[in-house]
């Protein structure tokens, strides 16, 4: 099966991306990443403290993982751009997850401000992955502006409510020329599987893994679910119809007639 995820010219070995924000102990991040095989890990630049010595979160990220700093805390494009440039200047590579939230009531991203940041950062050779409210027009504009992948939310951050935006995400998958990665809201591996069976390129999970009683086991469980459901997507020729084929077709009588 030739099933390779390519983003920003890099081959990604796992379709489970992991967020690091909510772990009770940074030391759990390393085994969670290693045992799940996750290849892309996102870290909020706001949490990185160079002077923290051994406690610096970057010490817990395996060298072979792709580090994707995120702009968590940014309230507008300007702040997101500043954080992205800072991350690059600090030697964290050129991947950036754009997260612009200016609403603490619902924690929903601002697509308009996000688009502005994508436009500028893509021109500066960043590999830009925007976190967004699922919206076809906004997604097209993000891709036109140079987004390497698009990251619609499954449900609001931290809500663990699963894939509530399914129909909109399905449209984005059908339409998009870049991978669609569901980010936020996935509470259980079955919900990640639901995304992958639909044809998502990957999923990004943080809260459900980080706040589980056993985060490492939960990371493995997500990884297995993602792998299995991706196989299922492929096994069904990459397309799963909404209605099952009827065993007694209504037009069966036409067979053998002119």
């Amino acid at each position: 099966m030739d099933d390779v995820l390519m983003i920003g010219g890099r081959m990604i070995s796992s379709r489970l991306f992991i967020g690091t924000g909510k772990f009770g102990d940074n030391r759990l991040i390393k085994p969670a990443l290693e045992k799940s095989g996750a290849a892309v890990v996102t870290v909020a630049l706001r949490r990185i403290d160079d002077s923290a010595g051994d406690e610096n979160i970057l010490n817990f990220i395996p060298k072979d993982c792709i580090l994707m700093p995120n702009t968590s805390g940014a309230r507008n494009a300007e702040e997101a751009i500043r954080i992205a440039r800072l991350a690059k200047a600090c030697g964290m590579g050129n991947w950036i997850k754009i997260e612009v939230i200016n609403d603490n009531k619902y924690l929903l991203p601002d697509n308009q401000e996000t688009l502005k940041a994508v436009d500028i950062l893509a021109k500066e050779e960043f590999v830009v992955l925007p976190y967004m409210v699922p919206d076809l027009y906004a997604a097209r504009r993000m891709v036109d502006a140079g987004a390497a992948a698009i990251m619609p939310l499954g449900s609001p951050i931290g809500s663990n409510r699963g894939l509530k935006t399914k129909e909109l995400v399905r449209i984005m998958i059908n339409d998009s020329s870049v991978p669609v990665i569901v980010d936020a809201g996935l509470g259980m591996p079955s919900e990640a599987a639901e995304c992958m069976e639909m044809g998502c390129g990957a999923v990004l999970v943080n809260t459900a893994i980080a706040t589980a009683k056993d985060p490492v086991e939960m990371a493995i469980a997500f990884s297995e679910a993602v792998r299995g459901s991706r196989r299922a997507f492929f096994a069904s020729s990459g397309y799963i119809g909404e209605t099952a084929g009827a065993s007694s077709p209504l037009t069966g009588f036409l067979r053998g007639t002119n």
Partner: peptide, 8 residues
Amino acid sequence: TLRYFGRS
């Protein structure tokens, strides 16, 4: 609290 702030 765990949902929105994690274990921090």
